[in-house]
Design a protein around this nucleic acid. Sequence first.
DNA 1: CATATAATTCAATAGAGATTGAACTATTAT
DNA 2: ATAATAGTTCAATCTCTATTGAATTATATG
Lengths: 123, 123
Amino acid sequence: MQIDQQNSVDIESFAQWLKIIGEPNRLRIINLLMGGVQCNCEIGDVLGMAPNLISHHLKVLRDEGLVNVERDSADSRWLYYTLNIEKLDLIQKTFSEFFDPTRIQPRQASCGPRDAILELTTN
Amino acid sequence: MQIDQQNSVDIESFAQWLKIIGEPNRLRIINLLMGGVQCNCEIGDVLGMAPNLISHHLKVLRDEGLVNVERDSADSRWLYYTLNIEKLDLIQKTFSEFFDPTRIQPRQASCGPRDAILELTTN
DNA sequence: CATATAATTCAATAGAGATTGAACTATTAT
DNA sequence: ATAATAGTTCAATCTCTATTGAATTATATG
């Protein structure tokens, strides 16, 4: 199922992305990642969240391909999470296309009482 | 709390919008509204959902200001739902600003072992 | 080796909200 | 008046998932 002819991403996947991004703590984590904070510990400090909860949300983000992770070369206990820019670009592109104002059509004649159709089709 | 200096919408509200839009059936409803389907009955037919469930989702969308509703002037049993374009524009604007690639900063020195900081700040 | 650190994994709980069926309101049609 | 129509509201259930605390892994340090 496709959103429309111009869009190659199905509604199910798009909704999934939005749901994942739409969790407040995850959105805060993404916000921090954009600002240059990349390790579990400091995210927890800034947001006042337990490390395992940060891990959980980062895993959700990573499973969906929204963030990447790499280990510190000097001390591999440290993990650095970074945003997957390509994925974010795709999401933003999908968002723009889905909510493109030119997609909006007037009400179709298939719905409503017959005598009211013509006067409302120009909405 | 603001997303950043250029953005006047707080993260909590932004997350709320995304969560509401990110529900698959609501996204399908929005998709139909954009395509010109505007009454409960036909949405239910197309999506195979019960009328009361459509009502529920439309109420969520309306409470958040994403859709407007008006009664048919000839037969007031019929309700026509339309998208609130201004609201969608605001959401899309917020989305673009939040995920603006130029906001992305390299890793801050406040996190990670000291000797690894310098070699990673150019990520 | 023993301890500390960074982070994850696991199990259990709790809360939010989608879904369902039934009852209800308002309006129109016979 | 009675029935049909469009839609909402209500109450209950069910599912998903965020959260919490404890245990575990892996690595580094003294």
